[in-house]
Nucleic acid binder design. Structure first.
Lengths: 201, 201
DNA sequence: GTCTATACCTTGATAGAC
DNA sequence: GTCTATCAAGGTATAGAC
């Protein structure tokens, strides 16, 4: 693939990607990644200078994945409302994983936010992709700033809340209910006065 | 105080409580706690058999703190709506800490949910206290199951989403806006048809 | 009850043979 | 490019002196 497309390097990234999600960043050791990737530990430092660099590569990899996802949605749906509902549908489709491990973006950000803020800033780029894409759909619906920013972050916010509560309570029903409420919220967008719309309904 | 009220034991719990919030559970070592508590490491094992036992004690301590908090609210406000708004006000009052470190309950639960589910179950008890208290207020407003459970979890859900997004984006404005929206949501509770109320507005 | 000393393991990272 | 051997540091936990 790209300029950094060594096969072994990619195997390391793929293994780390999974483990960072399943165990968290801090609890995942080089040994864990080495075992999952089927490579000896010492080989890592040829591809990455440190654990942080592996995380940066994993984030890049996830960013690429999200871009592909959003592109897919853009080509499959034209109506902004349908696109936004596709975002909500993603929550439903990921229910099993969300209940088991939470949101991969949210849990990583939460972890990094405590003692590794610079890395959290990198992770935030993943949320930014979704936020900006949502903002584009809201603009297409005729919404203007600052309502766009408000509503875009509202969708992200509820999505994160759903992920955490579903994980803590192991509750699929709650996730489904909140997703339905978000669909209704999307339907109501711009239906009445856009100013009062805000995040209150 | 209680039967387990050794002064040194309490110092360990207090130090661990702070550090678990600031650094997370996994990244906090015995050395960290010992330094903060001003005690030698070896002394810990007289009071706690393991790090997990310290966490259990910290959770108990936090549970007690939450019970006192809710009791305070109950004696200060009689109107269920005022009480619920006090919960929202807590989010605003904690804005600085939430932006810096996220929700102490949510971030801990997220961390433990990956590889230490039994401990996460213990941490969930903290959320349960808030959820049950919210449910009591909703019942006092004339709401019935299953709407009570739905709406109670909705408040928790949005609170968690707010905490995470405020932490990731270091955005106080977003927190304030969502809090205002929650106040409106509380005002609207039971104002119209209770069934349609649900979580959608 | 309190503290020192330390055992034993795993960690991230390095050196250097092949 | 790949891998083995190993480092120093820090982790949890224990033994045992006081």
């Amino acid at each position: 693939m790209g300029e950094k497309g060594s096969a072994k390097r990619n195997r390391i990234i793929a293994a780390a990607d999974t483990l960072f999600y399943e165990q968290g960043y801090n609890l995942t050791s080089f040994s864990d990644i080495a075992e999952a990737a089927g490579l000896p530990r010492g080989n890592f430092y040829y591809y990455f200078r440190s654990k942080e660099e592996i995380l940066a590569a994993v984030i890049d990899h996830r960013l690429q994945h999200i871009r592909v996802l959003l592109n897919d949605w853009n080509t499959t749906w034209q109506d902004p409302r349908e696109r936004l509902k596709r975002f909500v549908q993603m929550l439903r489709n990921s229910a099993d994983e969300l209940m088991r491990l939470g949101c991969p973006i949210g849990s990583l950000s939460s972890e990094l936010g405590k003692t590794q803020r610079p890395l959290q800033s990198q992770a935030r780029a993943m949320l930014d992709l979704f936020r900006d894409w949502i903002a584009e759909q809201l603009a297409a619906l005729g919404m203007t700033e600052p309502d766009i920013e408000t509503c875009a972050l509202h969708l992200i916010t509820v999505g994160q809340g759903i992920s955490l509560v579903a994980s803590v309570y192991q509750d699929r029903t709650m996730l489904t209910r909140e997703a339905t409420a978000l669909d209704d919220w999307i339907d109501a967008l711009g239906a009445t006065d856009a100013r009062a719309q805000g995040t209150s309904r």
